[in-house]
Design a protein around this nucleic acid. Structure first.
Lengths: 188, 188
DNA sequence: CGGAAGATTTGATCTATATCAAAAACTACC
DNA sequence: GGTAGTTTTTGATATAGATCAAATCTTCCG
């Protein structure tokens, strides 16, 4: 039973027994091992993953290199946003940085829930607001001029997970080289 | 009658006569002259503006300077997002870069509409998806390494409005100096 | 229409960070 | 538990773009 997921929903809406039952019927549990690929960019993203335990990375390739787009951890949904919403291909890969347990919902099940439970629409609107906040924060951080400012802001924003992410992935997230980030960390 | 606004809604949902009437009753028309301030950061943002004609800038102050956050034009809603959604202060100012005509909705009227018209929830969810796309695009663009790449991407993304925005404001949007942007423009 | 304020361009340095290269420190798996 | 592979650190240079300064070019209002 996806208790953690129910608790997450109830931050935004009251879950009726009927909705609870439909969710339970349509959601699947799935685990990923550290390093395992969750979504490959050559496919359309048809599943959304609610992370119960673990840490994942959304990234894309530029000049053969993996560039981190963002990181998601416990109590968050992760998918390839544009691909999932518009059901078209996009550039993002998703992999697990730690052993990760998820609850998985297929896009057509989600559509069914939207069509039959108006409160799901409200949930989506409100929780999107939260995600929105993250994006604004991200944009803010990107405009910090110096590499040090960016890194300090990153550590403040991801206080709970920054020490679980390899240095090189943080560097690509911040748009700086790993050498520079290493030097920044060294000085203190 | 806010015909342009109705058309916008109908991209996402069918507007019932009842919802149409409520919208009409609650929305106000307001014009702003070029250079006029639409929202000041010292206030909580209680209104959302649907732009019928014109161009506005959302910006904030850093070290006395105005930094452009983004630009909005025809057929888009503009407000100070976090301030409007969470009804708390935030750093953003909004002003008109051209003479601008808007339809204005107060936050408590919007809440009323959400509470009485479930299709408004759906509208919000779907249209937020669009805005989301813009943000993703924005983040992508910010990670382009060179100033030239950023500018080229900006021109492609804002093809219809980039020539309506002063150079200095574009530079601050891109996080580069106006001297650098001027030099980039010169070479061709 | 003319002049002042603002916006853009041009020029001459300076510096933070990229790049290239190699050593050192981890990690993990057979 | 040792060794191959990965990740991080350290070092030496190169460079894009910042900064400072001043000259033009626009705009707009009295």
């Amino acid at each position: 039973m996806p208790e953690a997921l129910f608790r997450h929903f109830e931050k935004y809406i009251r879950l009726s027994a009927a909705l609870r039952a439909e969710l339970t019927a349509r959601i699947l549990f799935r685990s990923f091992k550290k390093g395992e690929l969750i979504h490959h960019a050559s496919y359309i993203c048809t599943h959304s993953y609610f992370i119960q335990r673990g840490l994942v990375r959304v990234y894309f390739l530029k000049d053969e290199k993996e560039i981190s787009e963002y990181f998601s951890c416990e109590e968050e949904w992760v998918n390839s946003p544009k691909s999932f919403i518009q059901q078209q291909q996009d550039i993002y890969f998703i992999d697990a940085l730690e052993d990760t347990d998820t609850w998985v919902l297929e896009v057509h099940d989600l559509v069914y829930l939207f069509d039959h439970f108006p409160e799901m629409e409200r949930y989506a609107r409100l929780s999107m607001g939260t995600v929105f906040g993250h994006y604004m924060e991200r944009i803010t951080s990107m405009r910090f001029t110096t590499a040090r400012e960016k890194y300090v802001h990153f550590c403040r924003t991801y206080e709970d997970i920054y020490h679980r992410i390899p240095l090189g992935m943080i560097a690509s997230y911040l748009g700086i080289t790993q050498e520079t980030l290493s030097r920044i960390r060294a000085e203190r």
